[in-house]
Design a protein around this nucleic acid. Structure first.
Lengths: 116, 116
DNA sequence: CAATACACTTACTTAAATGTAAGTATGCCA
DNA sequence: TGGCATACTTACATTTAAGTAAGTGTATTG
């Protein structure tokens, strides 16, 4: 049977497994922003329109749990937390790029404008 | 605002738009099987473990509506229907391949065996 | 001393995706 | 004539993802 259990869940395909890591509304947009420099919670919030505190926190936690993102509490009095990609997280970037380009292509076919 | 309406729905990113076309549990596995030759409903059902009639029908309908799949009723008495990729559908294949390879990579890291 | 910034958490609700089970029309085959 | 195959549809239940609203603790700023 082409299927497997992992972490109390049954997967049918490698695709499903991949999307468990980077799928959903917010994970890819978050990972995408973490290319290059580490970003603070508040910076991610500013950069990703519509995301709520709760979604940003929960998605970052899941990405951390899966080892794609690293969380670093900066020293100091006021809370300051930085998020960055791990090596594992970096391997997702070309995948995201492929999907994003595909999405842009579909948008173009539909005549959808994207504010650049 | 980097966002747009399409078909009564609000999208925030091209990624979301792309996954509306090929996302979910079944769409990519279906599209993947339609590479090469056209496949009959019953062939797809046999090839895709765990998929139900209802899921296969609904996902094929959505893919048809979005123009990725073509549905052809074969002449004859008994119902015989063939599904194949449109040109638009074919552009999804390299994207799926990328995601699938990424999924295999993640599985390997986790030591998950895949019956080949 | 009150207001604000930051990075969260909690409880609850809504919406979307998926699954279960059964039924349908047509015609063929034994 | 009864059972089976094909390609569906329908009604319903469950599961998962996402959203809403409010609150928390610490510390700085005016």
């Amino acid at each position: 049977m082409p299927e497997f259990f992992h972490d109390r869940r049954l997967y049918y395909t490698p695709i499903e497994f991949a999307l468990k890591h980077i799928g959903g509304t917010w994970k890819m947009p978050i990972l995408w922003r973490l290319q290059g420099e580490a970003q603070r919670f508040s910076e991610l919030k500013k950069d990703i329109p519509h995301i709520t505190d709760k979604m940003l926190t929960s998605q970052l936690r899941e990405l951390e749990t899966k080892g794609l993102v690293k969380r670093i509490v900066l020293p100091g009095t006021t809370p300051r937390v930085e998020y960055s990609l791990t090596d594992k997280g970096k391997t997702a970037i070309p995948v995201i790029e492929t999907i994003m380009k595909y999405g842009f292509g579909l948008m173009q076919e539909e005549g959808i404008e994207w504010p650049h």
